[in-house]
Amino acid sequence: MTVIETKGITKVYNPKKVPVHALRGVDLTIRKGEFTAIVGPSGSGKTTLLNIIGGLDQASSGVVIVDGVDITRISDNKLIDFRKEKIGFVFQAYNLIPVLTAAENVEFIMLLQGISKDKRQKRVVELLKSVGIEDQADKRPSKLSGGQQQRVAVARALASKPSFVLADEPTANLDSKSTAQLLDIMAKLNQEEGMTFIFSTHDQRVIDRARRVVTLEDGMIISDVTR
């Protein structure tokens, strides 16, 4: 089952002054349950591709179909709703809400979805347990290590029961131990719950664990290997 389909995506920054072609016609299909790494050198267009797939940025041309919806044609308000319901985000810098505790960060997205308090709290406990930091639930992000924050970010990404999780350089700020723990958690969620993960990375440890590796260079896919 296809979750994401991009057709001929291009992205040009500064089109009127000094055009920078970040993506040059990317066609990519992601199916449910994939564990995909998008790799490539800095400036190859990995993050831009992820942002466009996640509806955080707009393509200059082309089509992005997520769960059967062309997200390049929907309004800003509907796109926000779409992100909330369909996509889980894990960012390189964790991007947790600093004034909320770990549990509240996970709960926040469900609150936006209008889920009842009982269900929210039950799921928060489950998710924090699944990422192994249930004992840190009442701590704010500033009191957590980088690895712990990223695990909270993963729990938050999964809270809304999204169609897939987009992770932009999720291990870039983590040490080896935290990276291994995070990858174990995500691999487990992928295998046991069938959650689709798409990473952008140049971390070899992540690339080694991915079952599909899409390589970008100069805004184009130069290889797509499924292992």
């Binding site: 996640g54 955080l56 308000n77 709703d81 985000f89 991007n95 809400i97 997205i109 936006l112 809304s160």
Partner: peptide, 15 residues
């Protein structure tokens, strides 16, 4: 920065 995150993860601008 935080506004960007909140809108990014699905918080409506109105809220």
């Amino acid at each position: 920065y935080e506004f960007g995150i909140l809108i990014g993860i699905g918080m409506k601008r109105k809220l």
